[in-house]
């Protein structure tokens, strides 16, 4: 029987976009990039790591399927298709006006968990450890709780063996080897190696694939199901007081010495 892998992938604003390009609606807790800047969104970096991890596992297991799933309201197809052209089999987009600005992980996790159940049998759910927009690192953990399956956060290596996932998870002082029964949810960091570049063959194959889209009604989710647990009441760019004192000197060695004196004067050392 085929080994079914679900990968979560999120479209985010380019983390390299300068904050000067942000358009913020603080009260609505909403941030967009000024459209005149023509800065395209990207697939979240750790999600690309997750896709890479899933494809590596598919290669190791042999008979496996990789389904990519994403929730949002405004997908840029050229961006999302990268998940398919890297080599994933199918893509499911949970798309609805109601899924715009998903900054409450409890809602996102509920959406994704519902869709995962709707897709059917799964052995492994892989996600990036966090997204670069809201930086919450919660959705995959929430999905594990909703589905009642084990979770291994921040893995840097995964091996599938005898119905279990043997993971190396990064810790503050090194790593620990954790064995989790399948199915389970695993989040990954950037130590799976560079996400692969799409091959021409996969790009062509991806072009022929149409993502399956589901809205809230098709997922059987009512407005009540989508009621928030947290609310952003303000969002702002903090003011920086730019008062850097540039240390002068005849040459760079003197600047170095003067810096030492300055740090001592300011009692930093």
């Amino acid at each position: 029987m085929s080994f079914n892998i679900v990968v979560l992938a999120k479209q985010v604003i380019d983390p390299e976009a300068p904050s000067a390009s942000y358009r913020i609606d603080g009260g609505a807790g909403k941030l967009e990039v000024d459209s005149s800047q023509k800065i395209a969104p990207v697939i979240n970096g750790f999600c690309e790591n997750a896709i890479e991890a899933a494809l590596q596992i598919k290669e190791a297991v042999g008979d496996a399927t990789v389904n990519v799933i994403s929730a949002g309201s405004d997908f840029v197809m050229d961006v999302m298709k990268k998940a398919l052209s890297m080599g994933s089999d199918e893509m499911y987009l949970l798309q609805d006006e109601k899924f715009s600005n998903l900054n409450d992980s409890s809602i996102t996790a509920k959406l994704l968990a519902t869709a995962i159940k709707k897709i059917g049998e799964y052995d492994l759910i892989i996600a990036g450890m966090q997204a670069s927009d809201w930086d919450q690192a919660q959705v995959p953990l929430g999905i594990a709780e909703i589905l009642g399956v084990p979770c291994v956060p921040i893995a840097r290596k995964i091996e599938i063996k005898d119905g279990r996932a043997i993971c190396e998870r990064a810790t503050d002082s090194g790593y620990e080897k954790v064995s989790a029964p399948l199915p389970s949810v695993i989040t990954v960091n950037n130590e799976f190696g560079q996400p692969r570049y799409p091959t021409l063959r996969n790009i062509m194959a991806a072009a022929r694939k149409t993502p399956i889209t589901w809205d809230a009604a098709e997922l059987g989710l009512s407005d009540d199901d989508l009621s928030p647990r947290i609310k952003i009441v303000d969002l702002f760019i903090p003011q920086k007081q730019s008062q850097c004192e540039i240390i002068e000197g005849e040459d760079e060695a003197e600047m170095g010495r003067n810096l030492a004196m300055k740090m001592r004067e300011a009692k930093l050392i």
Binding site: I13, P15, S19, Y22, I24, G29, L31, N103, S132, D133, W134, D135, S227, P228, R229, I230, K231, I232, V233, D234, L235, F236, I237, P238
Partner: peptide, 12 residues
Amino acid sequence: FGGNCIATVVCE
């Protein structure tokens, strides 16, 4: 947003 913004958040 990579430390570029601060959000003020309440729980519902």
